[in-house]
Design a protein around this nucleic acid. Structure first.
Lengths: 151, 151
DNA sequence: GGTTCTACTGAGACTGAGTATCATTCGCCT
DNA sequence: AGGCGAATGATACTCAGTCTCAGTAGAACC
């Protein structure tokens, strides 16, 4: 887990002010842990306006502290980012999120570029499935979740 | 372009009624062409309620006539689907959308599965860039668009 | 410590995309 | 032609996020 101190430093580095509201938000994010929704964060810092929560969520994304995760149903969560380009894999059962980096998507993109003639400059990839723990649960008919989310 | 007739058949095949509203929507979709927003469709069929537009957008997605495309900015468009599992590549300049299928993502997913321990059952992939025409335009500083959309 | 400047905040109205409700309409089967 | 239930339109609502604007409070300077 990333420390509150390093999150604060990320904001300071941009020349922004370190206000008590921002400190409260950062503490709450550290409390909430791995991943959380905007609503959870708003609830966790009572007294802070919703607009401010969203403003700072955006700021923290811009400074590379947080990233957005698009869930299977299209809703979004926020997550303390490991930094750098990465993708998410979300457990459909327990909601846990893992990151993976250095994925070999560049070959795939090159092939797509060759086939479509496009000059690719960005992509969006989210992967869904069952984490090792949930896949191991005997009670759950894992296969019933089969089917592609979209795209 | 998929014919209005085949779209109608897709609905009939599900046992749904072919109403004049649905015909109007299907005609409008054929008119709008390749890709369109829910708002454009609503505007194109004046007199049809917004709720009905969304209901039928969903129905047409469920019957495999349409698919959703998530744009770089997170907004969604609808698109007549080529059928089967496929992904989209969207031109950041002109907005054109192309599909690609048979992509070699399964190897990538297998590797991700091996690394993370997840049992993968779905994914979401959208690719952004410049189509061949737009990339060829001399006036546009194509490189300025560089950077990843997210995820 | 006081001033000042301006970024930041909170409240609340607003937006855009989509959903729920419900009375009315209209396909379609007989 | 009648009847039934699916489909519709109007409208209110939700959810996630943005805009506005007056008030507050960091922080830099004296």
């Amino acid at each position: 887990m990333v420390s509150t101190r390093s999150m604060e430093r990320s904001i300071e580095r941009t020349g922004r002010r370190m206000t008590r509201t921002r400190r409260a938000l950062i503490d709450a994010i550290a409390e909430l842990g791995d991943h959380f929704t905007a609503e959870q964060l708003t609830d966790a810092v009572s007294g802070v306006g919703r607009a401010t929560v969203f403003r700072n969520l955006r700021l923290l994304q811009d400074t590379g502290v947080l990233c957005q995760v698009v869930l299977r149903d299209g809703t979004t969560e926020y997550r303390v980012t490991p930094g750098g380009h990465h993708h998410h894999i979300v457990c459909s059962n327990c909601g846990n999120i893992s990151d993976f980096e250095n994925c070999d998507i560049s070959d795939l993109l090159a092939e797509i570029s060759r086939r479509t003639g496009y000059e690719i400059d960005a992509h969006r990839l989210e992967v869904y499935g069952l984490c090792a723990q949930c896949a191991a649960l005997p009670s759950m008919p894992a296969k019933s979740l089969a089917g592609s989310a979209s795209a």
